[in-house]
Each structure stands twice: as structure tokens, then as C-alpha cells.
Deep mutational scan, measured.
Amino acid sequence: TFTSIVTTNPDFGGFEFYVEAGQQFDDSAYEEAYGVSVPSAVVEEMNAKAAQLKDGEWLNVSHE
């Protein structure tokens, strides 16, 4: 299960995956970082959410 939350205070020191406002979700980078295949429906969902981000916001993507 993939989830996401919007934050204005990303923790770059941890093992977190963020999408910056104005960027798209990079499923290849996510797969490389976590060894998890990302279904195309999830990629579309995360890109739709990322498109709604305002300046200074980040989308924190995770999975269980």
C-alpha cells in the first residue's frame, strides 16, 4: 500500500522519499531506493497529487 502526505518541513536527514512542488514522482528512483516496484496506477496518483503542490510544499511518499 502506497501513501503520501503533504509537508512544508521535509526531513532530508531520514530515509524518506519526497516530491518537490513542480516535479513529478520518479518511480524509477523510488524503486531503486526501496527495491519496490511501483504500479502505474500509483505513479499516476502520486503525479496528480504532486501537481497540486504549492511552492514550499513537498509530497512525502511511503509504502507498507
Rank of each mutant, 00 (worst) to 15 (best):
Q52S: 10
V61A: 01
I5G: 07
E44Y: 07
A51Y: 05
T7W: 04
E64G: 12
A48D: 09
A33S: 08
M46G: 00
G22C: 06
Q52C: 11
F17M: 02
T1C: 15
G56H: 05
D27Q: 15
S28W: 11
S62K: 15
E57C: 05
E31Y: 15
E32S: 13
A41T: 10
G14P: 08
D55V: 13
D55R: 14
G35K: 08
A33K: 15
S37D: 06
N9Y: 08
T7C: 09
E57S: 04
G35V: 01
V36E: 03
A21L: 05
N60V: 15
Q52I: 09
A48V: 10
A48C: 10
G22F: 06
S62Q: 10
N47L: 04
A41C: 12
G35E: 04
Y34A: 02
E44Q: 12
A48I: 12
A21D: 01
E57Y: 06
P10Q: 04
Y30I: 01
T7A: 04
D26C: 07
S37K: 15
A50C: 07
A29Y: 07
G14L: 08
A29S: 07
H63G: 03
G22P: 00
A33P: 02
V43F: 06
N47A: 05
E64C: 14
D55A: 14
S62I: 13
T8S: 10
E57Q: 09
V43Q: 06
T3L: 11
L53V: 00
A41M: 10
V38W: 02
N9K: 11
V19E: 02
A41F: 13
H63Q: 05
Y34V: 03
F15I: 11
S40F: 12
M46S: 02
K54F: 06
N60Y: 15
S4H: 07
W58M: 09
G22S: 04
E20D: 05
S28F: 11
L53C: 04
P39S: 06
G22D: 02
F15W: 11
V6R: 01
H63E: 02
E45F: 10
V36P: 02
V36S: 04
T8M: 10
V38H: 00
P10N: 03
N47W: 04
G35H: 08
F17G: 00
S28A: 14
T7V: 13
A50R: 02
D55H: 13
F25C: 03
L53R: 00
V6I: 12
S62T: 12
E57L: 00
E44V: 11
V38G: 02
E57H: 05
Q23I: 04
S28E: 12
G56I: 02
K49T: 06
T7I: 09
A51N: 07
E32F: 12
S28D: 09
E20A: 15
T8R: 12
G13F: 11
F15R: 14
V43P: 00
N60R: 15
S4E: 02
V42A: 05
F25Q: 01
M46L: 15
E44M: 11
P10R: 06
G13D: 12
S4K: 04
N47R: 09
E64K: 14
S62M: 12
D26H: 05
V38I: 08
F12V: 06
T1D: 07
G22I: 02
D11G: 07
V61D: 01
P10A: 04
D27E: 14
F2E: 00
Y30Q: 01
E64R: 13
S28I: 14
Y30D: 00
A51I: 06
N9M: 11
S4Y: 13
F2P: 00
T3H: 13
F17W: 10
D11H: 11
D55M: 12
E16N: 15
F25H: 02
T8I: 09
H63M: 07
A41L: 10
A48P: 00
P39I: 03
E31H: 11
D27I: 15
V6E: 03
K49M: 11
E44A: 13
E45W: 11
E44C: 10
Y34N: 05
H63I: 06
V43R: 11
F25P: 00
E45D: 08
A21R: 09
G56S: 04
G13W: 09
S4R: 01
P39A: 04
T1V: 13
L53A: 00
V6N: 02
E57W: 05
T1F: 12
F12I: 07
I5H: 13
E20P: 14
D27F: 15
V19D: 02
M46K: 00
T1G: 12
A33V: 10
E44D: 12
Q52W: 07
A48Q: 11
D55K: 14
A33D: 04
G56A: 03
W58L: 02
G22V: 01
A50T: 05
E44I: 12
E64N: 13
F12W: 12
Q24V: 11
T1Q: 12
V42Q: 02
D11N: 13
L53P: 01
F12E: 05
Y30M: 03
F12P: 06
F15V: 11
A48W: 13
P39R: 00
E32P: 01
Y18G: 01
K49P: 05
F12T: 06
V6G: 03
D11R: 09
S40A: 14
T1E: 08
E64A: 13
Y34F: 14
H63C: 05
A41D: 11
A48N: 10
V38K: 00
T8E: 08
S62A: 08
E44P: 02
G56M: 05
S62H: 13
E31S: 13
D26E: 05
A41N: 12
